[in-house]
């Protein structure tokens, strides 16, 4: 997808977002009483409308450029890089699973599992020594530094707890 298509999609998405936002704000937040009381609704509402205007501008700009593009290839503002949806989605799942496991198994058990998963799935590393070293090493060093030396609470598990 070209940069301009990105911009058009972004414009459309933001326009939708601002529509939903403004509707939610109007229907759930009470207005102020007037006489100097602006109320909690005014600012979210103004921001929503601002976003709608800016998104519409972006959309219009990208559409106008696209019609220009048919006749000539104009130099772009620096083109965006391709979006790697799969690695991004995978990481989203992994981090969320990490959060879930932290509460259930605690830091000491959840961390090596997640490190193993990340190294196996995302990086496709198969060297057993590296896998073992990284997962145990990272866990142990973080546990010693944060929990023991700095006294920062690392998650303890609710299903099982190793401290």
């Amino acid at each position: 997808m070209t940069n301009r298509n990105h911009n058009a999609v972004l414009g459309l998405l933001l326009l939708t977002l601002s529509g939903i936002w403004t509707w939610l704000v109007m229907s759930t937040i009470p207005a102020g009483f007037g006489e100097g009381d602006i109320g909690p609704r005014a600012f979210p509402l103004i921001f929503g409308l601002f976003l709608a205007a800016l998104a519409a501008l972006l959309l219009a700009q990208s559409l106008r450029h696209r019609s220009d593009q048919r006749t000539r290839t104009a130099p772009d503002d620096p083109a965006g890089s391709p979006i790697l949806w799969l690695p991004a989605a995978l990481l989203l799942i992994e981090i969320s699973a990490y959060g879930f496991l932290l509460e259930k198994l605690g830091f000491v058990l959840a961390t090596p599992l997640v490190v193993l998963a990340v190294m196996g799935l995302n990086l496709r590393i198969r060297a057993p020594k590296l896998l073992l070293g990284m997962s145990i090493g990272t866990t142990l060093i973080c546990w010693i530094i944060f929990e023991k030396a700095l006294g920062i609470y690392l998650a303890h598990g609710s299903w099982i707890n190793l401290g």
Partner: peptide, 30 residues
């Protein structure tokens, strides 16, 4: 990056000791 990932989770969790913050971090990050 693997180490940074673990540090991110520790950082986000330690703010309020809640996994909710890790989920938000992941979503905002992506």
């Amino acid at each position: 990056a693997v180490v940074v990932l673990v540090l991110c989770a520790i950082g986000a969790y330690s703010i309020r000791n809640s996994a909710f913050d890790i989920y938000s971090m992941a979503l905002i990050g992506v």
